[in-house]
Write a protein that binds this DNA or RNA. Structure first.
Length: 495
DNA sequence: AAAAAAC
């Protein structure tokens, strides 16, 4: 075997993995069989969608959304209706055309369940949870475009907030994509450097980050008097984050009391759940059970490295696999993103880095190059952990296991889920590989696995060819699916 | 001991 293999900790030498790692080992065959079955099911569904042109093509595991109607709604004795056709939702002709042009032939589960609730009259607040890559953005964008009165195209009527510049830009693209046939549609991005100073914002839809939006309202650049809808994407993150939670609350308090509040995320930890309900009083809610949070199409794996230095060698070993499709590597700090990028480039690999220390235009450009496939490997921080939709991403690497809190004492299970959700988008399959290298990182990954009741497949670095083959199999399936599974974001970039 | 988000 190569030098590398001999430097990787052997299974029986791995530090402190007694219970967990052994059970993973024992379950490995079962895991693989399950992963294959899931991937196979996804493939079958995609094939079916192509044959019949009927399905959404979305590989959704059988999860049930618990629908809890607000008290008011229940009192009206309105039966809850989950739509299975766009045509059942009373959408405008232009909006229907936009959705169908994106190959969104049928609503996904979260779309079918949330839209009738969001569009009910009088408007009701909503908190909706659904796994990564199941169409939440298209759901709230459709709600926004359905609520806006386009006879007043210059009047701000809907506002969507996101936790990063990149995500705000992406949502802006989806509004333009789904609203392609709406005339005149005006969307503004309220992010640093994107709005002309001291000029009124004349767009019906505004997508932005909390600080800039707050600023632009205070300066009276943005007239919010006619605002009908406020969306918080990644709502748990928006409300939980120190600083951002305050900014979101201040923005909300400047809006008309009648504004409809829509909260969307793949995760709503109990800790922020009650606060979220205060933020959006009397909201309808769609919730997932903890066991339903994981996307079955994502094969979750891990590699056991002997120490921190070996992680870099393993990363380089994986480079060939990364470039079959596209890959995102998550690290803890901006500095390590820079450093690993420099090192990999020096070692002859093509890798770009993106984090919030870059200026706005540079960030836009970097992500745009990644979306176009010009750059295949992106090393980044948690700035891209949430929401970013690049359908051709087939592999996510947790170079550092996400931790929360000041002392890194606790694994960040939510961030893990969002990070791996950058692959396996809308019915595709994908791979995530997490690097562990000491007791702390083992325990952290074990904690995350326990949180979701999942097992991770161990890639044996002593048999690199086999490990590689196992990953390659999923990546190839992802490539095969790419031609069929629809993505609003892919279309947005094209237009 | 981090990242992100405003001027």
């Amino acid at each position: 075997m190569s030098d590398l293999a001999s430097r990787i900790t052997k299974p029986d030498e791995a530090p402190k993995k007694v219970d967990w790692a052994e059970s993973v080992e024992a379950d490995e065959n079962k895991q693989q069989a399950e992963a294959e079955a899931a991937a196979g099911a996804a493939e079958t569904q995609v094939d079916g969608a192509v044959e019949e042109l009927g399905g959404s093509g979305l590989h959704e595991p059988e999860w049930d959304v618990e629908v809890s109607l607000s008290e008011l709604q229940a009192n009206e004795a309105t039966p809850f209706h989950s739509a299975t056709q766009w045509q059942d939702m009373g959408l405008s002709e232009d909006l229907l055309k936009g959705l169908l042009a994106l190959k969104f032939l049928k609503p996904s589960k979260v779309q079918g369940k949330s839209l009738p609730l969001m569009l009910s009259d009088p408007p009701r607040n909503m908190m909706a949870q659904s796994q990564s890559g199941t169409g939440k953005t298209a759901a709230f964008v459709t709600a926004i475009l359905s609520r806006v009165d386009f006879t007043k195209p210059d009047q701000p009527q809907a506002l969507a907030l996101a936790p990063s510049r990149e995500l705000a830009r992406q949502i802006e693209g989806v509004v333009n994509a789904i609203g392609r046939f709406i005339e005149p549609l005006k969307v503004a991005a309220a992010i640093p450097g994107a709005l002309p100073r001291d000029q009124p914002v004349r767009s019906a839809v505004i997508v932005g980050t909390p600080g800039t939006v707050q600023d632009v309202i205070k300066r009276r650049q943005l007239d919010v008097s006619q605002l009908k809808v406020l969306v918080l994407d990644e709502a748990d993150n928006m409300l939980d984050q120190q600083g951002m939670g305050d900014q979101c609350l201040r923005v909300k308090n400047m809006l008309p009391k009648s504004v409809q509040i829509l909260l969307f995320s793949a995760t709503f930890p109990d800790k922020v759940g009650s606060y979220a309900m205060k933020f959006a009083p009397n909201a309808h809610s769609l919730k997932l059970q903890r066991s339903e949070l994981t996307v079955k199409g994502i094969s979750q794996m891990f590699i056991d490295c002997a120490d921190d230095n070996i992680k870099y060698d393993v990363l380089c070993k994986l480079y060939g696999l990364m470039t079959i499709g596209q890959s995102v590597i998550f690290v803890k700090t901006r500095e390590s993103a820079n450093e690993i990028q420099r090192r990999m480039v020096a070692d002859g690999h093509k890798v770009s880095a993106l984090h919030a220390a870059f200026d706005g235009n540079e960030r836009d450009e970097l992500l745009s190059k990644f979306r176009q496939g010009e750059n295949k490997v992106l090393i980044t921080t948690n700035v891209l952990a949430r929401g970013i939709d690049v359908s051709t991403v087939s592999m996510v690497i947790n170079y550092d296991i996400p931790m929360k809190g000041r002392g890194d004492s606790e694994p960040d299970a939510e961030t893990y889920l969002h990070r791996i959700g950058r692959t396996g988008r809308f019915g595709r399959v994908g791979v995530s590989i997490s690097f562990v290298y000491d007791k702390k990182s083992y325990d952290a990954l074990l904690g995350i696995a326990n949180t979701y009741g999942i097992d991770l497949v161990r890639l044996d670095t002593d048999d690199w060819d086999e490990a590689e083959e196992r990953v390659k199999e999923v990546i190839k399936k992802n490539r095969a699916q790419a031609a069929y599974a629809p993505s609003a974001t892919d279309n947005a970039k094209a237009s």
